[in-house]
């Protein structure tokens, strides 16, 4: 009976759609901030620096200001969506924290190694996200300028810059690992979304999802594990 129901529904649930939309927006804004961030790694400084900046005045595709603008606004969108993403998964976060504590106390059987790796990846992303977001907000509030150079909030501007740079680098690497771990879910749900979005096209009219309830539950969980 349940199998029949799955077959008839065929499309991802509303909850899964929301999760997918979050992941989609996170991916697009993350890609934009990463690409513009690479620009700032290659051409680290646009300032004049008294003649010792060989990159001064160099442009690539657009002016530096446009790169800064894209990076800033895509970053703000990414932070906002990431916060929603965390809120949507908060139950999972608290549950995993509770289980981890129980394992640490010896009250529960340990996770298998796959879950440990995923847990480690998600924990690292969460930690470095704090660094990226905090330093990003610092630069959003205090954009480049002569006056901003002398404003010290907890650390100097250069320290914030280095925190932003290295936290971002770690976050990009670990986020790619996270995406690779969840790749099957992304592909499966994206196919389901595409089928339902283009259901009016002949040939795509009847989405078919075959498989057990476990597969369907993985489809709809939208979670990290």
């Amino acid at each position: 009976m349940r199998e029949v129901l799955i077959e008839r529904q065929g499309t991802p649930s509303r909850r899964t759609l929301v999760h997918w939309a979050m992941v989609f927006m996170l991916s697009i804004s993350g890609l934009l901030t990463t690409l513009t961030g690479i620009y700032f790694l290659v051409l680290p400084s646009g300032g004049y620096q008294g003649g010792r900046n060989p990159d001064y005045g160099k442009t690539f595709l657009f002016d530096r200001d446009i790169w800064v603008g894209i990076h800033r606004w895509a970053g703000i969108v990414m932070i906002a969506v990431a916060v929603i993403h965390i809120v949507l998964h908060w139950q999972w976060v608290t549950e995993m924290a509770r289980r981890s504590m129980a394992i640490a106390r010896g009250q529960r059987k340990p996770f298998n190694h796959k879950i440990w790796i995923r847990l480690a990846v998600v924990s690292v992303i969460g930690l470095v996200f704090l660094g990226v977001a905090a330093s990003g907000i610092y630069f959003f509030v205090l954009p480049e300028g002569r006056a901003a150079k002398f404003v010290v909030f907890l650390f100097g501007r250069s320290t914030w810059d280095l925190i932003h740079t290295w936290a971002s680098i770690v976050m990009i690497i670990v986020a790619v690992i996270h995406l690779a771990q969840r790749w099957k879910w992304v592909v499966r749900v994206t196919q389901g979304v595409a089928r339902s979005a283009f259901a009016w096209l002949p040939g795509l009219r009847r989405p078919v999802v075959r498989g057990s309830m476990a597969v369907q539950e993985r489809l709809t969980e939208g979670g990290v594990l």
């Binding site: 690479i38 700032f40 790694l41 290659v42 680290p44 400084s45 300032g47 620096q49 008294g50 010792r52 150079k149 100097g156 250069s158 810059d161 280095l162 740079t165 290295w166 680098i169 990009i172 690497i173 790619v176 690992i177 690779a180």
Partner: peptide, 27 residues
């Protein structure tokens, strides 16, 4: 691909760090 990407990012990070530190000592 992950190793190459990580290497390139770390290389870029070192490049930027040097620029930031040089700029810091310049001011």
């Amino acid at each position: 691909a992950l190793v190459v990407m990580s290497g390139a990012l770390i290389f870029g990070g070192v490049h930027r760090t040097q620029a930031v530190l040089a700029s810091e000592s310049g001011t």
